[in-house]
Computed example of a mutant assay.
Amino acid sequence: MTESFTVDHGPLNRTYKLRRGRITPGQRSALGTLADRFALPAGDAPLDLAELFGQNAPVVLEIGFGMGDATLAMAEADPSTCLIAADVHIPGVGALLRGLHRRTLENVRVLNGDGAELLKRRIPSASLAGVRLYFPDPWPKARHHKRRLVDAAFAALVADRLAPGGRLHCATDWEPYARQMVAVLSAEPGLELEFGGPVERPEWRPVTKYETRGRARGHVVADIFARRKPGSVSGR
C-alpha cells in the first residue's frame, strides 16, 4: 500500500467506528497500483482544487462512501462535477478504486482517511460546491451522542468551506439524529436550512446499502439540505 493511502492525522474526536472487512485480492491490487492515478496528494498543505482535477469545475466532498457504489453512480451520472471521496474503510477504498478504473472515471479523487479532518485541515474556505454526508454512524446510545459528526462545530466548518450558495446534503435513517441535524444546521448563522425530513429520495442520490438496511428495519429516511447564505462571511 502506498503512502497516499495512509491517514496523516487522527481525528480530534473520532466520529466513526473502524469496521473489519476482508480485503479481496482485487481490492488489494487496486490499493497498490491505482494510488498515483486517484489518490489525493499526501501532506498537510491546502489543496488547490483546480490543479488537483486539472480543470476549474465545481467540487463536492463526500464524507464516508462505504463500498463506493453510490459514489461511482453519482460520478458517472454527473461528469461535470468533481468529487473528493473520503472513507476509513480499506476494503471500500479498494473497491472504489477498482470501480473508477473500470468505468474510466477521472472526476474523482480518493482519501483513505477522515473526511471531516480533511475538510478542516486541507480544504480552503469558500471552495466547495457541496458536501455530502449519507448515513453517517448515528451513535444511538445517549452516552455516545457527542461522537455524532453533525454538531455545531461541524456546521460552522461546512459553512466556511462551502462557496456562497454551496449545499450540504445529509441523509439518515435514524430519526433522533435527523432532528439533531435540523436543529444544528438551523442554528448555524452561515447556513440556510432548505429542508429537513422524510421526502421522496432525490433522484441524484442512489440507494445505499445502509438505506436499504434501515428501511428493512422500518426506519424512515430523512434527507436534510442546507445552503450557505450568499452574504455569510468565511474565514472561521
Rank of each mutant, 00 (worst) to 15 (best):
F5L: 04
V7L: 12
D8I: 09
H9R: 13
N13H: 13
R14D: 05
Y16G: 02
T24Q: 09
P25G: 13
L31Y: 00
L31N: 03
G32W: 04
R37M: 02
R37W: 07
R37S: 00
N56R: 15
A57T: 11
V59Y: 04
G64M: 00
F65V: 01
L72W: 01
A77F: 01
A77R: 15
A77S: 14
D78T: 14
T81H: 00
V93G: 09
L96S: 01
L97F: 05
R98F: 06
T104G: 12
T104D: 15
L105V: 01
L105I: 15
V110W: 07
V110N: 03
L111S: 06
L111A: 08
G113K: 01
D114S: 03
G115H: 05
L119H: 00
I123K: 02
A126R: 14
S127G: 05
L128S: 04
L128A: 01
Y134G: 02
Y134I: 11
W139P: 00
P140W: 02
A142Q: 12
K146A: 11
R147W: 10
R148A: 02
V150M: 14
A152K: 12
A153L: 02
A156W: 00
A156V: 01
G165M: 01
G165T: 04
L168S: 08
W174G: 08
Y177V: 06
A178F: 06
A178G: 15
V184G: 05
E188T: 05
L191I: 05
P198F: 10
E200S: 13
R205C: 00
T212H: 11
A216M: 11
V220H: 10
I224A: 07
R228H: 11
R228T: 05
R228D: 12
K229C: 14
K229V: 14
S232E: 10
S234C: 14
R236W: 14
